[in-house]
Amino acid sequence: MASQGTKRSYEQMETDGERQNATEIRASVGKMIGGIGRFYIQMCTELKLSDYEGRLIQNSLTIERMVLSAFDERRNKYLEEHPSAGKDPKKTGGPIYRRVNGKWMRELILYDKEEIRRIWRQANNGDDATAGLTHMMIWHSNLNDATYQRTRALVRTGMDPRMCSLMQGSTLPRRSGAAGAAVKGVGTMVMELVRMIKRGINDRNFWRGENGRKTRIAYERMCNILKGKFQTAAQKAMMDQVRESRNPGNAEFEDLTFLARSALILRGSVAHKSCLPACVYGPAVASGYDFEREGYSLVGIDPFRLLQNSQVYSLIRPNENPAHKSQLVWMACHSAAFEDLRVLSFIKGTKVLPRGKLSTRGVQIASNENMETMESSTLELRSRYWAIRTRSGGNTNQQRASAGQISIQPTFSVQRNLPFDRTTIMAAFNGNTEGRTSDMRTEIIRMMESARPEDVSFQGRGVFELSDEKAASPIVPSFDMSNEGSYFFGDNAEEYDN
C-alpha cells in the first residue's frame, strides 16, 4: 500500500469516517454492505422474486439502478423543472426478469421514488447511507470498465484509444464523492478537466460571474484530485501550473494530454476495490451473516471469500459463452479491467482472455432483445487465490505491452514486471518541450526514458491461498515475461453508450 500519510484510507472515504482504527473501519464497511443486503432482500420480497430470480444479476442491476435514481437529487430536480413526455419524475423502474413456464419473461416495473427511498433508509437504520449508494455506483463503473473500451470518449477529448488503461471510473457520476474520486484513473480526471476547458473556450461566460466562481472551485478541486494521483514531483508541479492558470485554454489542454500520456509509464495511484452486485450481499445477509459484527474490507480476502460461497446467475444470449460472461463479471467484481492478464489468470486459476476474444456482450439486456431465446446460467466467480488490492500504480518500471492497449494499471499487489510499449508511448511525445512547463516536461520525458521494462514492481508481494486469511504465506508467482498482458488488445469491444 502506498503510505497513507495525511490521506484517509478508502474504507474511511467509503464510510465518510473520520480517523478510525482498522477494526472500526471493518465494522463501518460491514455496516454499509449489510445495509445493501437488507435493502436487496426487501426489494425481492416487494417484487415477489423467487430465490433464483433474486440471484439473477440482471435483476440486481435494475434494483441497484432504481435506488441510485431515487437518490439522484440533481436529476430529480431537473426532471421536475423540465417535464418530458412519458417520463414521470417521481417514478423509477426498469426490467425485471421472471421464469414463467420454463421461459424467461421481461416485466417492466415502476415504483415511486419516495417508496424506494423509504425501503433503502429502513434497511440502513434510517440513514441515507450515501456510502452504500456510492458502492453500487463503483460496481456499475467497474462493470462498464470491463465491458467497454471507451474509444470515442478518448478520441473526443484528444487522447489515444490505446490509453484505455487510464480510464478507470470514466462512467462514474460526478456525485460519487471521495470514494469515487479515489477509483478514477488519470485519464478519467484528464477527460473531465478537458471537457471543462473546452467549454470555457467555447463559452465566454463559463468562468464568469457567480456560476463561474463555482465552476472555478470545481476545476481547482479536480486538479488537486489529479495532482494527488501522480507520484513524481515534476508531474505534480505541472498540475500546479494547470490549476493556477488564470484562464484555462489550449496550453492547459496540451499540458493535460501530455500528463495523461506520461501516466502510461509514470503511473498514478488509483484505488481498486472489489464492489459486488447487491444480489451477492442480499443472500449472505439472508443466511444470517452479520457483516457489521464480522467486519468487512473491500481490499482484502473478504470479497473473494464471499464470491467463493455465492451463487449468481445471468441471462445468456443464444451465441454467448457462459464462461466468457463469467470472466467479464469476475473482472468487474475485482475492479480488474486494466490489470495484467498474466496476473489475473494466476489468481483466477483459469486463463483470462483479452476482451476481443470473449464471445459475450454486456450483462444488460436491451429492451428490444428477444426473450424467447434467452437461457440462463451460473456465473463462475470463484478464484484459485486471493491478493491484496493496490492503491498505487506500482513502481515506475515497465515491460512490453500489446498493440491495442499500451500499458496497464495494476489492481493487485503482486510481484511482476509491468508491461508497456515504450516505443509507441515515446513516439507520441513530439519533443515539444517549450513553453512555461518546459523544464517539467524535459524531466518527465527523462524519467520515462530511463524506466526499464525488466524491473520488478511490488517486490516480494504474492497471492494467498483462500485458507490464508491473515495473509501469512505469500506465494510469489513467476510470469512468462514475453507473454501478452493487455485486456483490450487489438480490440473490438462495443462502445459504451450512456
Rank of each mutant, 00 (worst) to 15 (best):
T6D: 00
Y10E: 00
Y10R: 01
T15M: 15
E18V: 14
N21V: 00
A22W: 12
E24G: 02
S28I: 01
V29G: 06
K31Q: 04
K31R: 15
I33Y: 06
G35L: 03
G35I: 03
I36M: 15
L49G: 00
T62R: 08
R65M: 09
S69V: 13
S69M: 12
R74A: 15
Y78R: 06
E80Y: 06
P83G: 11
A85W: 05
K87R: 14
P89L: 04
R99T: 10
K103R: 15
E107I: 11
Y111K: 04
E114K: 10
I116E: 03
N124Y: 08
G132L: 07
M136Q: 11
M136L: 13
W139E: 04
Y148M: 06
P161S: 14
K184S: 01
M191T: 09
E192T: 07
I197G: 15
K198T: 06
G200S: 14
D203H: 15
N205K: 15
C223F: 10
L226E: 07
A234C: 10
Q235V: 02
Q241I: 06
V242N: 05
P248E: 01
I265A: 11
V270K: 13
H272I: 02
Y296I: 05
D302W: 11
Q308Y: 00
N309D: 05
Q311M: 00
L315N: 06
L315H: 01
P318L: 14
H324N: 12
H324W: 06
K325N: 10
V329S: 00
R342L: 02
S345W: 03
T350E: 02
K351D: 06
L358N: 03
R361H: 05
Q364N: 14
N370S: 13
E372N: 12
S376M: 15
S377D: 02
S377C: 14
E380I: 02
L381D: 02
R384W: 10
Y385W: 04
A387M: 02
G394S: 04
S413D: 05
V414E: 08
F429R: 00
D439T: 02
E454F: 13
Q459L: 14
S467V: 04
E469S: 05
E469K: 12
K470S: 05
A472C: 01
F488H: 05
D491L: 04
N498T: 05
